[in-house]
């Protein structure tokens, strides 16, 4: 099958990415495009394509279009769609799976979201908890884009004023203790 746009970056058959996409398409094959997920989605307004659109692309195996979109990065894992899907499909899990595939294969149009996820997880790994100030500082550094960082300044000041983030660095009783979990996950992912 083909669409009117050429299918440029589909993984060659037999690679891990293609398998993962096929498995995912299999898990979502019962979707009948009713749109409950899209209607339920709290973030759908910020998405470039709706969740229903995304699942349709997954069903049809249009990998280039899927990873051209930022929709799955915007999913905040609220599980509304999973709860409400009349077919009982694991939609939130599927969003996560897409994120994983995107990172594993470097399939992203915009590096901000993967960078944020990575910085966030690194901080958690290092300290056993989130330290907002540090996450953001590392994130901005990694972005290497003063303009983006500057754009967040008003929000940062507002949050500081309201005491939502604190300049004081919290204690680090859990430091390094999450390392083995991360290692195990990596090991499991490599196997799958």
């Amino acid at each position: 099958m083909s669409t009117n746009e050429p299918n440029t970056n589909a993984s060659p058959p037999g690679t891990r990415g293609a398998d993962a996409m096929q498995t995912l398409a299999g898990r979502l094959s019962a979707c009948m495009q009713c749109g409950t997920c899209t209607g339920s989605c709290a973030n759908s307004e910020s998405m470039d394509i709706t969740p229903r659109h995304l699942w349709r692309l997954v069903q049809l195996g249009l990998k280039d279009c899927i990873f051209d979109s930022a929709t799955f990065w915007i999913c905040s894992s609220c599980y509304y769609c999973t709860l409400r899907c009349p077919r009982g499909l694991p939609l939130t899990d599927a969003m996560g799976e897409l994120k994983r595939i995107a990172v594993a294969e470097g399939l992203f149009r915009d590096r901000t979201s993967p960078l944020f996820y990575r910085t966030f997880l690194d901080t958690v790994r290092r300290y056993g908890r989130v330290r907002e100030m540090e996450v953001m500082a590392r994130y901005f550094l990694a972005l290497r884009s003063p303009a983006v960082s500057a754009g967040f300044t008003p929000l940062g000041i507002k949050l500081l004023m309201k005491g939502k983030i604190k300049p004081r660095i919290p204690g680090m009783s859990g430091r390094g203790k999450l390392g083995p979990i991360y290692d195990k996950v990596r090991e499991m992912e490599a196997r799958s």
Binding site: G35, T38, G39, C41, S44, E45, I49, T50, R52, H53
Partner: peptide, 10 residues
């Protein structure tokens, strides 16, 4: 009622 129309608009 909030719904998604066939074109995807909420």
């Amino acid at each position: 009622i909030v719904y998604s129309d066939p074109a995807g608009t909420v």
